[in-house]
Design a binder for these strands. Structure first.
Lengths: 214, 214
DNA sequence: GGTCTGAGTTACCCGCAGGTAACCTAGCAA
DNA sequence: TTGCTAGGTTACCTGCGGGTAACTCAGACC
């Protein structure tokens, strides 16, 4: 796996030199977030993180018990930062515009938390504990979406189709988020439009049907 | 990453003992496919593969240049095995049933090629070359889907929305495939129904609109 | 200005897994 | 039976990267 890497850019000058423990911890955390997102857990060496934080390995170990603990701390923080996309919605204007409002929030989040998205949705390396944490985040997302689907009045979605539908939405929206991160010039409106077109029917907005059946 | 693993089950008795080179190569390939799918590239040790093929490491190296070459060979084989989901379709019955026919093929493929799906869509470890190959497969899938969308007569999908739509479909269907592998009791019909409901509008089947506009 | 705390470094250990050198042996052919 | 071929093994080398022991030195405080 010895992929040669360009050294991650160093932290800005203001953050170099002797820092307080809290400051240093913050610098390390930022650097680790950047590198883990860029290369994934397995391919990121602790020494790279240390260098990116303008420090040496033992200092990283003073702040974090292990590489894995550092990664888990970041992942847990990202999980915690996940906003609740589903609370306080104005549901008076129909399913489609509710879905659109949720997706607006989603893509706002993605834009502001690219490293988190990559760590949560792209990387699949790490030991069992790490994979379990990522799986848990994913499963929760599915549960929330499934609950939302089940909650739609007069939804035409049969019960046994709810879980796979939620899974399709979750992985589709995660993949789309990653794609957007790689294509930052695409305007948010396009992303929301695309996602809404697919999500609204999935969630139970009136099906496309032959006109006679409407 | 020292995840303790249960040893992969050994190959059936008929395949043990002294085999011809071709037979042994086939045994190794099967074992590797199984283990790589179960644990991913990084977490699978060559010695595990050798043991699962009832053989020792140097024998694996007689057949494959390196662990990476073995993985790439499998990945290339899986890429080659990907059928063309889009040829020979009966397109006379409208977009939705065309989409449904494609998805029938997709889930047939998934059921028959679970290890391939996992290696292509779940694992993200490996060095740059491996990741590039997986990316290429994914990009091709997107291109094919994008072409299909662009090909729909009277599609309402604006040009700049085609690529993200294809990405959403690709990652959604890949994720759904993985979910199905983990939930093998769900009948194929449910999967096809769920996927069709989401894909047809995405591809440009008549939009859900207020009845007055239909 | 001494001294103590804690940020920071150098130089190392060690285990794991990829890869190999040297050897063994089943079984076929002459 | 002898001997060659080719499948197979044991025992090793090696590098990489996670983790640590032992030390240095800046600067706050008395």
């Amino acid at each position: 796996m010895a992929t040669p890497r360009a050294a991650g850019e160093r932290t800005p000058k203001a953050e170099r030199g002797r820092l307080s423990a809290d400051q240093r911890r913050a610098v390390i955390t930022r650097a680790a977030g950047r590198l883990f997102a860029r290369d994934g857990y397995a391919a990121t060496r602790l020494e790279d993180i240390a260098a990116a934080a303008d420090v040496t390995k033992p200092i990283v170990y003073r702040h974090f018990e292990s590489k894995k603990a550092l990664y888990l701390a970041l992942l847990a923080k990202h999980e915690e930062d996940l906003p609740s996309f589903f609370v306080g919605l104005d549901r008076s204007s129909g399913v489609e515009s509710t879905v659109r409002a949720i997706l607006e929030r989603w893509f706002d989040y993605v834009r502001e938390n690219q490293h988190a998205c990559i760590m949560l949705f792209r990387d699949s390396s790490g030991d069992e504990e790490i994979r379990a944490l990522r799986r848990r985040v994913n499963r929760r997302a599915c549960q929330v979406i499934a609950a939302f689907i089940a909650d739609q009045d007069g939804s035409a979605i049969p019960a046994e189709e709810i879980d796979p539908t939620a899974e399709l939405l979750t992985s589709g929206l995660a993949g789309l988020a990653l794609w957007w991160i790689d294509h930052p010039d695409v305007p948010k409106e396009v992303m929301v439009e695309v996602a809404t077109r697919m999500s609204a029917p999935a969630v139970g907005a009136a099906r496309m049907l032959p006109a006679s059946a409407v």
